[in-house]
Amino acid sequence: MGRMIGKQSLVFDKPPYIIEGASIVGQKEGEGPLGKLFDVVEQNPMLGQDSWEKAESLLQKEAIQKVLFKSNINKEDIRYIFAGDLLGQLIASTFGILEFEIPFFGLYGACSTIGEALGIAAITVEGGNADNVIAIASSHFASAERQFRFPLAYGNQRPYAATWTVTGAGAVIIGTKKGFAKITGITTGKIVDYGVKDAQNMGACMAPAAADVIYRHFKDFGTTPQDYDKIITGDLGVVGKTILFDLLNEKGYDISKVHMDCGIEMFDAGMQDTHAGGSGCGCAATVLTSYVFKQLRKGAYKKILFIPTGALMSPVSFNEGNSVPGIAHLVQIESC
């Protein structure tokens, strides 16, 4: 059974396995540095639907179909789905998984949602409450822009610190039968608010939460950056990355030699005009289920920390002048 360790962490005595992953992305993501690693690259941003939101739901549906196919597991053998997205009341997840008729836990951690989903999924499987579960998260550039920022037709100029919401969905099957990797521990993040109000600079909003949970993990597990092949954040981008390094250096930890950020890796910022990098629930989820899983499979990574990050804002909170608190959830993954 999972054991509490330190102040915020769990260590799993019988680690649940990562059996399979699947990634579905849009055209821009497919044109980026990781393009050849995704399972499916959709060329039509509407995916044949009549709204951006329906297109995002279809991303989730396709990701689940793909991960079931790749794992040779039937949907009837999935006990629960832990899913989330950025849209109000999780409508992308709701309509995306509707026809699978699998018990559903809807989660919201902003862009950290896949980390939250993996953590709760691992607790559920390791506790003997399910044999197989799916963790999934999605985002869509246009549906996020409609909800959080300006209409696309407005043509506003994006500041350097802004990130580009990834169109994509990443799905993971976690179960009791041996897979290519295992989740050996988690450190659940706290809400951290440094008072940043610039919603266009989400890296600055999220970096303090990432630093906090990484520091807490080191303390709870008694480890250092040198104990990991990679420490992978979600979508801090180039601005948030610098802040993360500064905050951890103040606490005596230098992660620069082993750090990777999914938002930075997703796009070629110069060629694709994505400014600070990628973001959205689909960013960390698709990089994890493509590039990172491939590295774990071939043994290039033996032990990693995966820390997707989220900016906890809504259109209402932003319009009322509130700050943008951050959250980050850490998952410790080891290859088998």
Rank of each mutant, 00 (worst) to 15 (best):
L58P: 01
L58W: 01
Q60C: 13
Q60E: 15
K61G: 00
E62G: 06
I64F: 09
Q65L: 12
Q65F: 09
V67T: 13
V67R: 00
V67S: 00
F69V: 14
N72V: 09
I73V: 07
K75I: 10
E76M: 10
D77S: 11
I78Y: 05
R79D: 10
Y80L: 08
A83H: 02
A83S: 14
G84V: 01
G84E: 01
D85P: 00
D85L: 07
L86W: 13
L86G: 10
Q89Y: 09
Q89I: 04
Q89L: 07
L90P: 05
I91V: 02
I91K: 02
I91S: 00
A92I: 01
S93V: 05
F95S: 11
G96W: 00
I97S: 03
I97Q: 04
E99Q: 13
F100S: 01
I102T: 10
F104T: 07
F104W: 08
F104H: 08
F105Y: 05
F105V: 05
F105L: 05
Y108G: 06
A110Q: 07
C111Y: 01
C111V: 02
S112N: 10
T113C: 01
T113L: 05
I114A: 00
G115F: 07
A117N: 12
L118M: 15
G119L: 10
I120F: 12
A122C: 00
A122L: 04
E126A: 14
E126Y: 09
G127T: 08
G127Y: 09
G128C: 13
N129L: 15
A130R: 15
D131K: 15
A135I: 12
S138A: 15
S139I: 08
S139F: 05
S139W: 12
F141D: 02
A142Y: 14
S143M: 13
S143E: 11
A144P: 11
R146N: 11
Q147T: 15
R149S: 12
P151H: 02
P151N: 02
A153Q: 15
Y154H: 12
Q157F: 14
R158C: 07
P159K: 14
Y160K: 13
A161L: 08
A162H: 02
W164F: 05
T165S: 10
T165E: 08
A171E: 07
A171M: 11
A171L: 09
V172M: 09
V172I: 15
I173S: 03
I174T: 06
G175R: 12
G175L: 06
